[in-house]
């Protein structure tokens, strides 16, 4: 009886092919990814059957927390002429101008460093009277963390308010700060943004599905007052219906 011979095989597996595949996948993800931008509050947008895609450039996004706080994000053109950095500085200048017209007693002003800090922000939303202090944080050590805390409403100092003031003042002459920001955004040099806002695609409201109608209504009312009658609501795709 002959013994069955088992050939001794090496367990070494050639991983080169596997490595090729993973590198390809990695390249794909790196190229297609758009990073989630950091937001002061997390919201779950309601589901809708609408399949219209959201505009990524030339849009002012209004983020509404369930408690009724408002933050804004401004995304400009991809062209260098109307780049985000440049337009942000202009937006701040414009809003300062509008604000100082109605607050002659205690006007606000920003220095070059503060403007620089503002142009780098993602979402913003601090009362203008505290904006200077907020922007100065950027130069401090761990300033960015402090700014995030402030925006997220977790600042230990109770005087640091987050959210753009939006109390209803239904007159064209007496604007609240939210209306000032939207007006300022319409007045910036970026003609594409102004056009998009006119058509309605340039203003997007992002709110949580459980936000009460009272708050949504307040935001809509504010927009209506400054004749921003067209806007869009951000929704998530509803699966399986229609």
């Amino acid at each position: 009886m002959g013994r069955v011979k088992i050939a001794r095989k090496s367990t070494f597996i050639d991983m080169t092919a596997m490595s090729d595949v993973t590198v390809l996948l990695l390249t794909f993800f790196m190229l297609t990814s758009t990073f989630l931008s950091k937001e002061p509050t997390t919201v779950i947008t309601p589901a809708s059957v609408s399949t219209e895609k959201v505009q990524e450039t030339n849009v002012v996004q209004v983020l509404v927390s369930p408690k009724g706080q408002i933050w804004l994000t401004m995304n400009n053109d991809t062209s260098a002429q109307w780049s985000n950095t440049k337009m942000r500085v202009e937006l701040l200048d414009k809003v300062t101008e509008i604000y100082n017209e109605s607050h002659k007693k205690n006007p606000v002003s920003f220095n070059a460093q503060q403007k620089q800090a503002f142009s780098k922000l993602g979402a913003f939303g601090v009362p203008l009277s505290q904006m200077g202090e907020f922007l100065s944080l950027a130069d401090e050590p761990e300033g960015l963390t402090k700014m995030d805390q402030w925006l997220g409403g977790e600042d230990p100092n109770p005087n640091h308010k987050t959210g753009i003031p939006i109390a209803v003042e239904n007159s064209e002459d007496n604007l609240n700060e939210f209306q000032m920001w939207i007006k300022a955004a319409r007045q910036t040099e970026n003609a594409n943004l102004a056009q998009a806002m006119k058509e309605g695609a340039g203003v997007a409201i992002k709110a949580d599905q459980n936000t009460s109608f009272e708050i949504i209504h307040m935001v809509m009312d504010n927009l209506q007052t400054i004749k921003q009658n067209k806007f869009t609501l951000l929704t998530a795709l509803k699966a399986g219906d229609e």
Binding site: E52, A201, T232, T235
Partner: peptide, 18 residues
């Protein structure tokens, strides 16, 4: 984990003037 693959959808609404 860091990417958003699905873009948000939008609903356009037009309100009458105030």
């Amino acid at each position: 984990l860091c990417t958003t693959m699905i873009k948000s959808q939008t609903l356009t609404i037009a309100l009458p003037t105030n």
